[in-house]
Design a protein around this nucleic acid. Structure first.
Lengths: 197, 197, 197, 197
DNA sequence: CATGAATGAGTCTTCATTCAT
DNA sequence: TATGAATGAAGACTCATTCAT
């Protein structure tokens, strides 16, 4: 594997690449576009990275590592189901805030990429993800804090999608902090948008 | 424009193409893959269509036409805000049911395609869409049926995304009819997943 | 695997490719050079072949198949050691005559190519080859028709190289038929170039 | 021309390069592979050498200089034709022993390289070579020590190839000294491998 | 209607080479 | 002397598209 001496340059380039991947899609992003955005020639990128693929790889792997650091901390905290969901959602919006391009790439390309062995960790992560969220929801139903009349898998998908699609429109320069957005989302998800009668 | 003699063959081919586009993404879908799926050679597709682009074009345009037929009927019915939202959501899940590949393509590629003049109608549709949903939500807030303490644009995105992402996992062979899914989604969106205390 | 309908065109192109490979070496031969020699564009070759590699593959495999057809016939004929060597040498020069470019490629590139699993048959062939020649020589020593005072492996290499290097200078338009060359080579190999005293 | 301070380092590097060139072929050898083998970075080689080409150049030129030192001594010794051939063959195996990588490179690449003006000396050397060997053989035929019934150019190629291909399998750590191998080769070439009847 | 064959532009990648430090 | 980083030209391969049959 190509590893350049200065990790800062590497990270810089990966940030640039992530931005372009997120904006144009992995396939539509040519190595030349990334290089242009980085102010160098296409071939020069290969001094730092093995391939275009290894770039997404590193972008996604880095993001998922950080994501799971946060998630695992939440899951280990021994909170009740509702508080766990609240903490996971908040953590998710924080990740979207910090890794927006990576999250957008993950959303658009992970299904596609996961077909390759190299990206097996995407599938692994997705399974861990499902277990964490679905498990918490089930616990909540059991403990009577979440509604029992809903299809639990539907609920899971609802909550999951609801959070992560936000990465497609979220712009960090907006007026809302990730915590503020999380609070509103949680309010909608938990209590609905209808006025209580 | 190339027009083949039999419109049925044309529609068949477009269905095939839509399936492949949805499964692999527009860019990753080669004309050859579509032709393979249709049991012909790549070049032969050009008897029926001008280009790969004109295929997505026709797929998306057909879908949007039908979608707006349904939406316009709902919007013209003079329902109250809550009933309008319910009808729009239900209509949306019906469209997902009937045009799943088209919806999936729309989700993944529309931002990307809308950059080209040829696909200007995607932007138009999106604006009409926003006006319809956002307007209904605002009306609902004014009339006191939707919560006033939420950022209305956030609510809009929440409801919109919540519905359409379903196209990414929806499988028509499932146990749930579109109406059943719509009912559950509406229940979650309107009343939340938390048990009322 | 790409297989064009007309095997003749395929063979034509392979002949062209073999000529270029033989003249310039596999690595130094660009796909464009082959295409130029064939009067088409580089990309067009990929309608007929999967890759540059698959071209050499087919060239070498075809050659080796024919070679072993001939060799196996000789080995199955139940000849004495000396007659076997004579027949093998003659057969070899015939193959050089018919597949000169393929033989030249085999000489120059087989060691290099054999490293890849795809070309495993090169190693197999080489082992069969060694067994056939070395075995015959050993039989000859045992039966007293070949000298016993020589290192048998050295003799094997001597005879083997002696024959096959001829491919590097042999030109089919020469005055010598393959049989004539074989006869002279055999005379040298068997009886030496020195005048008997 | 770049000239490094210590000629020993230069020679070390050339030996390394020759080894890699011989093992992988000139074209397939990247400057980076040579640098790896030498324990430095690719760019660093350019402190010592002008180019990859100048490396082979120096390797081959050095080898040919030494070869001709030996050959010229033999040719000047006034030996009879048979003794001259014996001495040349022995000298050749000694060169193979001392410059195996260079000889291998010469075998594989000289035809290819000779096309460039810079390597004109390869053609010159080859012509001198032919004159020496062919002349000696002709003298031998005239003097009645070599067979007159053979095509003399065929004989020349036979003897020449017979000796030099050995470089492709010769390994200095073997049981045979160059002189021993030369003796056996000469015995085969001069007297043949068949038992005299 | 469909095939077979080709085009040509573009993509990812490699690599010899340069040069400031 | 050697490194790190970059250049730029070229190479293998892909793919939308064309067109004669």
């Amino acid at each position: 594997m190509t590893v350049s001496a200065s990790p800062e340059r590497r990270r810089e380039l990966l940030n640039t690449a992530a931005e372009v991947f997120a904006a144009q899609g992995y396939n539509a992003t040519t190595v030349r576009k990334i290089a242009d955005a980085a102010g160098m020639l296409a071939g020069s990128l290969y001094y730092h990275f093995d391939s275009k693929e290894s770039m997404v790889d590193e972008i996604l792997a880095t993001f998922l590592t950080e994501l799971w650091d946060g998630y695992d901390a939440v899951l280990a905290a021994g909170l009740g189901p509702r508080e766990t969901i609240e903490a996971l959602v908040t953590e998710s919006f924080r990740e979207i805030d910090r890794h927006r391009p990576a999250v957008a790439i993950y959303q658009k390309e992970s299904r596609h990429l996961a077909a390759q062995p190299r990206f097996g960790y995407l599938t692994d992560s997705q399974q861990k993800f499902e277990k964490a969220w679905l498990g918490t929801l089930e616990r909540g139903v059991t403990e009577g804090v979440f509604r029992a009349d809903l299809d639990i898998r539907l609920t899971y998908r609802f909550v999951r999608d609801t959070v992560w699609v936000a990465a497609s429109w979220y712009r960090p320069d907006g007026h809302h902090s990730p915590e503020e957005i999380a609070r509103q989302y949680l309010s909608m998800v938990l209590d609905g948008i209808a006025v209580r009668t």
